[in-house]
Write a protein that binds this DNA or RNA. Structure first.
Lengths: 157, 157
DNA sequence: TATTGTTATACTCTATAACTATA
DNA sequence: TATAGTTATAGAGTATAACAATA
């Protein structure tokens, strides 16, 4: 997209504010904040938190990664990821091994147990979300599916 | 919606898992977690956090509320809201007055300063989100607008 | 006795700054 | 000197349990 096109879009988008109606940014912010809270509050028997599940999903999807790569993909700072990895390693869900050529780096990957967890337990954690999604219409789910893609792209910028 | 319809929907939705593709629940979870992180990380000169802005937006939209009502609308527990209100009151952005008929309750409302903040500063906090949204196409924004509605409804359940 | 709200306490998530080890 | 990662520390956000005040 050219810089000009982008500016025109921004002008068009910002040009007609409706003071009686909350902006799209406001509504999207509130919706995301609230769903995030709701998902975190969803307790499972497991001790693995939403953040940890998210990191494990990333490893499951991308394969073994260095801590730095994992932090970048999850959009957190390296020290935050250090802690997530340490906790998961203590639980035996991920393992670390030395990088073959660079002594500074490490390779983090799911253990057998971690993979099994991802297959079986993640869906348990997501039970509430699954059920809530199931209550929607097929059209609404299709819409959310596309929205998830867009939101993920926005967050990754 | 009847209970039967709901069960059929759930069966249809859950019946065809595709192991090669992350589920909608997974993708939506990741998208929401990441956008939430990204929004919180968005620093402003202001000292008002995203959670505080969210509570103020709620007061701006609904008018004066008791702490309990505000907690329910935001989907947090009362003690959590106690803290948010206390901080906002210290900053002079909201005020508390006694409930006219029930001595246990209180009425929380935006002050003049709080309203001004909501008009002027909130958009500053949302600058990043606004800009990011402006980079999308009109169709994508329309889609997100509908998604925000659905997500908010899901979170409110 | 039930309801509303607050206080006390603790845990998760995340950040920045400073440090260590390796390239 | 630059990069990858960890340790130390701090702050936001949220919860549960226990308490106080009022209905």
């Amino acid at each position: 997209m050219s810089r000009d096109t982008e500016l025109v879009r921004y002008a068009n988008y910002m040009g007609e504010p409706d003071p009686t109606e909350p902006s799209l940014a406001s509504r999207l912010r509130l919706a995301v904040v609230r769903l995030n809270r709701r998902m975190r509050a969803q307790r499972t028997s497991s001790t693995v938190s939403l953040t940890q599940v998210s990191a494990m999903s990333c490893l499951g999807k991308c394969g073994p990664l260095t801590p730095g790569e994992l932090a970048a993909k999850e959009g957190v700072q390296p020290p935050s990821m250090t802690r997530v990895i340490a906790t998961l390693e203590e639980s035996g869900l991920v393992s670390r091994r030395p990088h073959p050529t660079d002594g500074r780096q490490a390779i983090v990957e799911l253990t057998e147990q971690g993979s099994a967890y991802l297959r079986a337990e993640v869906s348990a954690r997501e039970a509430w979300l699954d059920l809530t999604l199931a209550r929607l219409t097929e059209q609404e789910r299709e819409l959310l599916s596309r929205a998830a893609e867009i939101i993920d792209r926005m967050a990754g910028q």
